[in-house]
Amino acid sequence: MKSFRLVNPTTLDEAIDFASDRAAGSSKFLAGGQDLLTEMKEHLSGPDRVVNLKSIPGLDALDSSGGSLRIGALTTLSRIERDAAVRAHWTALAEAAHSVASPQIRTCGTIGGNLCQRPRCWYYRLEEANCLKKGGTECFSYGGLNKYNAILGGGPTYIVHPSDLAPALVALGAEIVLRSKSGERRMPLEKFYVLPADGDVTKETVLADGEIVTEIVVPKPAAGTRSTYVKFKERESYDFALSAVGASVVLEGGKVAAARLCLGAVAPVPWRVERAEKVLVGRVLDETAAREAANEALRGAEPLSQNAYKVPLTKTLVERALLALAR
């Protein structure tokens, strides 16, 4: 790990000032450190200054008193998975938080860090492979060993976004609040992520240098809303998803009034499938509807040489998530 200076700001403005002071060298925000430290140890990230967000009071709120759910960026995953209101009304989020890594990691890891974490692609994670994602010239997964890589939205890099919280939050219609020197902006979470083809391939989000995620806001669910997060991994003990689905439906009189579906671990961003959502609206949530939605969700998938299995796998997960919501 490269040596760095640790700074402990006590206000958001101070943190932003530290991170925007280019003269003092590069900087990185530190939340739970569960991703950042592994990146620094592998020399994928070598900031001159580490700006500790944990020293800022008030960034770890978890509040649903106003009907919607407001989660401070520094709120830990273990708090989210245990919160009674989250479990009752934003079930997909509680399930997603519970599915992350191990209890130890969830005790330290935060929601902000989870949404901003970097990809897990084998090639990206190894310093020796100077891949496109790290500023090189080639995405090695494309012609290489790609069983964990993208089947949707890939190119020119084929990473998958590793966050478990993101697909659940997109399915719940969450918004993200960012703060920087030029003020505050707020956007639907799905707009926070950018496809490699649409922006800087070395980044996964619109987050600018020196910009901080301060809060996630999840709207109050409409009456009749049910949600779930279904994650599939290779190993029962801690592991990232091979595929996952966040699903939320509003059931009215036995029929689907509204639906939101977002796939995880199959695309470089949390992959919302609006066409599949449309298939469901106005229908009874039965096996046929679930299967049609699943087929629609995977339409256009372009597997690489070793990850075609993700197509049937993800279809299964979509179907099961929807049928679980019908029960």
Binding site: W122, Y123, L126, E128, A129, F140, G143, G144, L145
Partner: peptide, 12 residues
């Protein structure tokens, strides 16, 4: 063990 035969590195 997983090795990328082209890059010659162990991926895991």
């Amino acid at each position: 063990r997983v090795i990328d035969p082209v890059l010659g590195i162990q991926l895991n």
